[in-house]
Design a protein around this nucleic acid. Structure first.
Lengths: 187, 187
DNA sequence: TCTTTCTATGCAACTCGTTGCATAAACAAG
DNA sequence: CTTGTTTATGCAACGAGTTGCATAGAAAGA
């Protein structure tokens, strides 16, 4: 389990409430680590009772009060420990790959729309990443003038960009294949 | 949940026992859908009691008897229904990305070995994929002479190959970045 | 012969993750 | 003034997934 660690990293980058964390997980972090708000609140509770994080009640105007969390020394130590651990192989769940192989026992042509929809989603995400890269990592302070944290955030973002580009190219390959095997025997 | 569907696809491609399925999940299928043998046995039970699959006790010499499962009509219908459903967005869990961003609050150089280890794993997997491709999808019957099922298996395999190549290139980018930010301030 | 390894199946307990629901404060729109 | 939306937090129940353990037949090797 590493949700705790993902939360620690996010809180180190910027302290915030459970609500704010769940928003971040929907946006940037969620692209490589998903979590619902329920999970986040539950884990935050446990982390707080373990002394990994500190809470601060923050009264707000124009909206309900919030609890702002920040990383305490034991949390930082726990993160450091995890960072030095060997690591777990990533577990994958690719529904689409299962569907593609399953299409051999059904109508392959029926998958085309689905694959096209996926392609659009990945295309949008790529555009979103590229916009973020232009916003945060180009201009006057680009290349060399960034600190270590920004460099690392940038390389993770480049990973996301590479992933989306590869996926889009592969989905085009899938579409071409579906058309090819659909064409010879239409009736 | 789609473990049921992954099992259905695997059993349609080739009937087999829970043990054989768990081996397949370790090998080919496991690259895009992981599952332990416990999970597989439990789900097989449920699928059997739901009438999705049939069992056949197969006595063997030189090893314990096994239960060979094959897909029944209701299972095929369930698979078909799932194939025509809109679809779920894939959920990702990229430990390494979390670690990389976390390295900003620790020693980035300490990550280098870890990343190198990952690179080796992905490199091995790529070689394994390429060997499988050479074995199953080249030679006399290559390109045009394959049936739909083989074409679809091939395109999924090409996806795996593309993924590994992209990942290896990205890990090289990560390594270069870690070296770059480690070099300017070593002491 | 005894231990180890491979095939083959499974229970029990636990943790992780999801879904549905509930609450509440503040503002905006009708 | 009621309804809807956004921010903000949380419980309860369930289902998915993991870990540890147990069993058992047969072959291989020490």
């Amino acid at each position: 389990m590493a949700l705790e660690h993902a939360i620690l990293v996010s809180l180190l980058e910027q302290p915030g409430s459970g609500y704010e964390l769940s928003r971040r997980f929907e946006r940037s972090i969620g692209h490589f680590w998903t979590a619902t708000h329920q999970q986040i609140y539950r884990v935050l509770k446990r982390m707080e009772s373990d002394g990994w994080i500190d809470v601060r009640e923050v009264p707000q105007q124009a909206r309900p009060d919030k609890k702002e969390y920040s990383v305490a020394a034991p949390g930082r130590a726990a993160l450091s420990r995890w960072l030095h651990e060997p690591i777990e192989p990533e577990s994958v769940r690719h529904d689409l790959a299962v569907k593609i192989r399953g299409a051999a026992f059904d109508d392959p042509a029926a998958l085309i729309r689905e694959v096209e929809r996926h392609r659009r989603t990945h295309s949008d995400l790529l555009a979103h990443y590229l916009a973020g890269e232009r916003r945060d990592f180009t201009g006057p302070g680009a290349d060399g003038a960034l600190d270590a944290g920004q460099e690392l955030q940038h390389v993770v973002l480049r990973g996301g960009i590479a992933y989306e580009r590869m996926t889009i190219a592969w989905l085009d390959d899938v579409l071409a294949t579906l058309h090819r095997i659909g064409a010879p025997s239409p009736t």
